[in-house]
């Protein structure tokens, strides 16, 4: 019931991470290790600092304390809002990280189109600007952008929170499929336990006040191999029987420390 694949070399190790915004501690003494190829879902109540942790792990935010050891080759990231460049077409948006890598234009184009194909983006939509795309299409573009650089690790920061239920499921399937095909590991931030159980090998629960990791549970079966009944039963079991998940839904993010 505890760790799953700790014997393989870890792809990501966070040790003693602490962070404070304007003197207010949001994270303290967080230790987390992800095995190579492992998809871990990080859950926790709103405002517990899981997004901040993902930003620190991805190198967007410098932590006040602690160390991040990344042993993967290259990571991609998908944010809650798509964060596309409004002035660039979907194709140019997908190719943006490739441009940062300094690849020639032709190769950028080809790899962007391949990535678009993997998330089932229509070729005709690639010449459109983000403003012309629907919410789901934009998030698909953002996922394609993360996949275009051929990453072996991907950070997902609550990527599907703003999408409706049906679209959310399609996007989750897409991520499961992509993770299986490209064999990348992932840290998937979510506050939706159902989503966590569908997508991940392991669910990591964060302390409600950001003071470390409260605990972790391996999810039986493989991502994509669990049917809806199994997922419902697992989630219901976690919520009713497991004390670890007791506080997951009942914290207000506007609380004062």
């Amino acid at each position: 019931m505890t760790r799953e694949t700790t014997d393989a070399a870890p792809s990501l190790t966070l040790s003693g991470i602490g962070h404070a915004y304007l003197g207010r501690t949001v994270l303290d003494a967080v230790d987390l290790t992800l095995a190579a190829g492992e998809v871990a879902a990080l859950v926790g109540p709103s405002g517990c600092g899981k997004s901040t942790l993902a930003h620190i792990a991805a190198g967007v935010v410098e932590p006040s304390r602690g160390r991040v050891a990344r042993r993967y080759r290259r990571h991609g990231m998908v944010f809650q809002d798509p964060r596309l460049l409004p002035w660039a077409t979907a194709r140019a948006n997908i190719a943006y990280p490739l441009r940062l890598l300094g690849l020639p234009r032709r190769e950028r184009r080809e790899r962007a189109e391949q990535a678009a194909q993997r998330v089932a983006l229509d070729r005709a939509d690639l010449d459109k600007f983000p403003i012309e795309l629907s919410g789901g299409m934009r998030q698909r573009t953002a996922i394609a952008r993360a996949l275009a650089i051929d990453p072996d690790f991907v950070y997902f920061d609550e990527p599907f929170t703003a999408l409706d239920v049906a679209l959310k499921r399609r996007m989750q399937d897409l991520v499961i499929e992509a993770a299986r095909g490209a064999r990348f590991g992932a840290l998937f931030i979510t506050h939706d336990l159902m989503e966590a159980v569908r997508i991940a090998h392991r669910v990591v629960v964060m302390d409600a006040h950001g003071r470390g990791i409260a605990g972790t549970r391996a999810v039986p079966g493989k991502p994509g191999g669990r049917d809806d009944g199994t997922v419902y039963r697992l989630v219901a079991g976690f919520l009713s029987d497991d004390p670890l998940f007791r506080h997951i839904h009942d914290i207000d993010e506007r609380r004062t420390p």
Binding site: H55, A58, G59, V60, H75, G76, M77, F79, D81, R83, L85, Y96, P97, L100, L101, I149, Y155
Partner: peptide
Amino acid sequence: GLDDMARAFGA
């Protein structure tokens, strides 16, 4: 947000 995105991709 775009700045953070670019930083996440190593810019």
